[in-house]
């Protein structure tokens, strides 16, 4: 009943993710998909889709960018190709992309994903009216809000249970601009491993990188392992694990832990402590784990 969606960065990793229990692989590439572990071409997406379908599993493709005219021009061709390779769904947050998809009338549904803007059941209902088969919840919601949202909807609301969460997207190359100002020559890409710290909060550590879509800033890595029982009990059964900043085998092992947690939950014998400890041992030591907004009281956020 619990569905695990995990990002996949390559056909090799996809195979491993399917083996450890991922139900849906999440992939994509430029210029339509945002913040993926690796930008994949259609050939790789096709290969991953074949792998997944062979095991009766699914592939969703990220078309979640804020699209400009130029991208909109190229979109119909991309969507058609995705339909041809039998991708199971796309994620979309741009109404222009959604309209394009509807006009093409393909056998390719979409899941509404507009990042920070998906915060109520009524919003999601609007997009369901416009064809969405589900939605990805904003990371800024508390457990009580998510619970209420899901209880009002028949379609699944996807919840991030592991990974960093994007808290800022700028169209500007903010790191490059700083380098130019400071006379530095340095890389700005995702694998460079750059972070911001707010001096007023010495423990803060916000990953930052640039790509073709601009600058992206993330929060602390999230892990809901300690509270999966609450998610499960409240009908939040669509889990996303995001490996945007964690490559290779480490991410696969983390997905494996969540798959184990799922089995335990469904068997009624979930005990988080051991799984949390194992997760801690795989998680890069320099990046601590937190529960984001999930355990906060909505009243404390104003």
């Amino acid at each position: 009943m619990i569905k695990i969606t995990a990002t996949a960065e390559s056909p090799e990793q996809a195979r491993a993710l399917l083996d450890v229990g991922a139900d849906t692989l999440y992939v994509g590439g430029h210029p339509f998909g945002l913040r993926l572990p690796r930008a994949l071409g259609l050939d790789e997406i096709k290969e991953i889709t074949l792998l997944a379908h062979r095991q009766g599993k699914k592939v969703n493709v990220a078309v979640n960018g804020l699209l400009h005219n130029e991208q909109v021009e190229q979109l119909p061709d991309y969507l058609q190709r995705l339909a041809e390779i039998n991708a199971d769904a796309v994620t979309m947050g741009d109404p222009g992309a959604i309209l394009t998809l509807q006009e093409l009338d393909l056998d390719l549904p979409y899941i509404y994903d507009a990042g920070t803007l998906v915060t109520s059941a009524e919003q999601i209902a609007f997009w369901i009216d416009h064809g969405a088969i589900g939605a990805v919840a904003a990371r800024e919601l508390t457990l009580s809000e998510l619970k209420e949202m899901q209880s009002k909807l028949n379609q699944p609301v996807e919840v991030l249970v592991y990974g960093p969460t994007c808290i800022h997207q700028s169209g500007r190359p903010l790191v490059t601009n700083y380098y130019r100002y400071a006379g530095m020559s340095e890389r700005t890409d995702k694998d460079r491993g750059l972070y911001l710290r707010d001096p007023k909060n010495p423990d803060s550590q916000y990953p930052i990188f640039e790509d073709e879509e601009g600058t992206h800033i993330f929060s602390q890595d999230l892990s809901l392992m300690p509270v999966l029982q609450d998610l499960y009990d409240n009908g939040l059964h669509t889990w996303k694990l995001d490996g945007v900043l964690l490559h290779g085998e480490a991410f696969v092992q983390i997905v494996r832990l969540f798959a184990e947690a799922r089995e335990a939950l469904e068997a009624g014998n979930f005990v988080p402590a051991a799984l949390c400890n194992r997760l801690q041992s795989i998680q890069p030591q320099s990046r601590s784990l937190g529960t984001g907004f999930y355990l906060k009281d909505p009243k404390d956020i104003n």
């Binding site: 808290i167 997207q169 700028s170 909060n201 803060s204 601009g214 906060k296 404390d300 956020i301 104003n302």
Partner: peptide, 23 residues
């Protein structure tokens, strides 16, 4: 806004103030 408007929750994560609800 230096970000795409609405696509920035720095305030939420840094000081528990919801940028998209007036904070």
């Amino acid at each position: 806004c230096i970000a795409y408007s609405g696509r920035c929750t720095l305030s939420n994560h840094m000081v528990n103030r919801d940028a998209n609800r007036g904070g």
